[in-house]
């Protein structure tokens, strides 16, 4: 098992390299360079060149890439162009925990609601319950979740005043868990809805597939009661493909968090990314892209490992 994990990590490294190359390449191809933003447009040509020299912008592209990568590996993402003098790593360490918290809680919500719904739907196939769950799922798939977010803010924050409209905590108040949870509920719920519908459909079909298998018939023929057949013999098998989905869901979660963080003014890396994109803060954009991609790679790695834990047929 340990060697399997190490092998999987080693496989992930070239992928991460590729991501840094693409991220770097795209920024290089974008018009203009950082000095264009930093400097007074009236600056003298020689001075501009001097700055470009000083920042190493006239060096060979490869040299620039290696320098950027080398710094990044050591945790140095450079400085923001807009917020001058602020190290990007400080921005990231301030923002990343918020995003991770949001994603963790909302994926927890998504799984906690979707998987049981999917299982119920499958075991009561073609019943009114199944049809209702299916109907709501399709409604969920068809509804953009920023819209759900806006509606929830309208109803629960603006009209009813039950929840704050945004932020991670009430400004100017001392830290309190309840306050944090209070702020977390709406954005986490909305982010969860992004994948909940799909996940419900997926759990249903996975479970339906399992319930058709011969070993389920064997379990019934052995006299086990229905719930034992479904949970002991069915559920563990049905969970295996769902674990893969966990890995596949991460990119959409990160994409979703960009939108949800903007709507709820949630100071995570998604919001950081949006701000940086509007301000053409290239080094910040690059850092966020690399970090988001790393999250996806790590997420898939975890899914693969979980998969191997759950499915004895995986040889490692």
């Amino acid at each position: 098992m340990a060697s399997y994990i190490v092998r999987r990590i080693l496989y992930a490294i070239p992928l991460l390299f590729l991501i840094t190359i693409i991220s770097f390449g795209m920024m290089k191809m974008a018009p203009g360079d950082p000095t264009a933003l930093m400097m007074d447009p009236m600056i003298k040509k020689e001075n501009l060149v001097a700055y470009q020299e000083a920042y190493g912008l006239n060096d060979n592209v490869l040299v620039q890439y290696v320098r950027w990568l080398g710094n990044m590996v050591q945790g140095n993402f450079g400085e923001s162009l807009i917020r001058q003098g602020v190290p990007i790593s400080d921005l990231i360490t301030a923002r990343l925990p918020n995003t991770l918290l949001l994603m963790l809680v909302s994926s927890f919500i998504a799984f906690l609601i979707s998987i049981p719904l999917g299982v119920i739907s499958a075991t009561k196939r073609n019943s009114l319950t199944d049809y209702s769950i299916t109907f709501v799922s399709f409604l969920g798939i068809a509804t953009p979740n920023f819209w759900i977010g806006l509606v929830l803010i309208m109803v629960f924050s603006v009209n009813l005043g039950w929840f704050p409209t945004g932020g991670v905590s009430t400004l100017g108040e001392p830290f309190s868990i309840w306050d944090r949870i209070h702020h977390l509920i709406l954005p986490a719920l909305v982010l969860a809805t992004a994948d909940m519908a799909g996940l419900t459909r997926y759990s249903r079909s996975s479970m339906l597939d399992v319930l058709r298998q011969d070993y389920i018939r064997t379990a019934k023929a052995n006299g086990f009661k229905n719930s034992t057949v479904i949970f002991k013999h069915g559920f563990r098998n049905g969970l295996i493909p769902i674990i893969t989905i966990l890995g596949l869901m991460l990119p959409s979660f990160i994409g979703g968090s960009v939108i949800i963080e903007s709507i709820f003014a949630w100071p995570g890396i998604g919001l950081l990314f949006v701000e940086a994109a509007f301000q053409r803060d290239y080094p910040v954009i690059m850092a966020v892209v690399v970090i988001a991609a790393t999250l996806v790679v790590v997420g898939n790695l975890l899914a693969d490992i979980l998969y191997a834990v759950f499915d004895p047929r995986i040889e490692y």
């Binding site: 011969d214 070993y215 018939r217 064997t218 019934k220 023929a221 052995n222 006299g223 086990f224 499915d311």
Partner: peptide
Amino acid sequence: EKEMYGVRGKDIAMIFQEPMTSLNPVL
């Protein structure tokens, strides 16, 4: 149905045509 739980596998047992798929792969 509940009484049948005690009959299946106890009084009447069954084996099937498909040995490759009749056992639970995760147990």
